[in-house]
């Protein structure tokens, strides 16, 4: 009983329900933004490998900046709180999504593109009807990587007053409140595994359905 009591008390003291809502709010916005931006960028550059390479280099540089340093870079522009946290999430997640989307769009087997042209599809129709659907399995595995990134960075957002599940974790660390640390950490972990699992199911479905013979 004591375990459950402890969990319940940590839950109420640290307002974990509220923190979870804040957490998932930032998570969803960041994920949607990075998918939109990542896929859009991939669509813009898929027919131009040189341009794509420039983008990948830029994003790689961003990827190499530690999260905390990135927060600090973003502070003067976006201040404290949710905005810089979401921005950091997006900046980190564009790369995996864009890289996978680019690979998926650019490397659709030439035979399909050729027959699509031959039966009279325009370049845009080929993109929408052939390239994008056939790239979906790869795009979704890029999104899966992004899910894990975003989960971690949103938690770190607790440091810069963004709210979310980073807050009880920080509080626990400062006060050496071990139950709070354990409950919050396990909860964040569970959420992470849960979303990764959902993403995995989606990826698998797509892969099975869209897999070329």
């Amino acid at each position: 009983m004591t375990v459950i009591d402890t969990i319940l008390s940590v839950w109420t003291v640290h307002q974990i329900t509220l923190r979870t809502i804040q957490h998932l709010y930032m998570f969803s916005i960041a994920l949607i933004l990075s998918i939109l931006i990542g896929v859009t960028l991939a669509i813009l550059v898929y027919s131009n490998p040189k341009l794509a390479n420039i983008w990948f280099n830029v994003l790689n540089v961003i990827e190499m900046i530690p999260e905390l340093a990135l927060f600090i870079f973003l502070l003067p522009i976006l201040g404290l709180g949710e905005k810089p946290t979401i921005a950091a999430c997006v900046l980190y997640s564009i790369l995996p999504i864009m890289r996978n989307a680019y690979t998926g769009l650019a490397h659709v087997s030439n035979e399909y593109i050729e027959i699509a042209r031959a039966i009279g599809l325009t370049k845009n129709e080929i993109l929408l009807k052939i390239r994008l659907p056939m790239a979906l399995p790869l795009i979704s595995s890029g999104i899966r990587v992004a899910v894990v990134y975003i989960m971690g960075i949103v938690t770190l957002g607790g440091l810069i007053a963004a709210g979310g599940l980073g807050v009880p974790l920080q509080a626990g660390i400062y006060r050496y409140d071990i139950p709070a640390i354990i409950v919050a950490a396990l909860w964040v972990g569970t959420l992470g595994v849960f979303f990764d699992f959902i993403a995995w199911i989606i990826e698998n479905r797509l892969a099975r359905r869209f897999n070329p013979w």
């Binding site: 399909y112 050729e114 027959i115 031959a118 052939i130 056939m134 869209f210 897999n211 070329p212 013979w213």
Partner: peptide, 11 residues
Amino acid sequence: YVIQQIGLFPH
């Protein structure tokens, strides 16, 4: 236009 074997879109 009909080509050899591959030509149907798998998705």
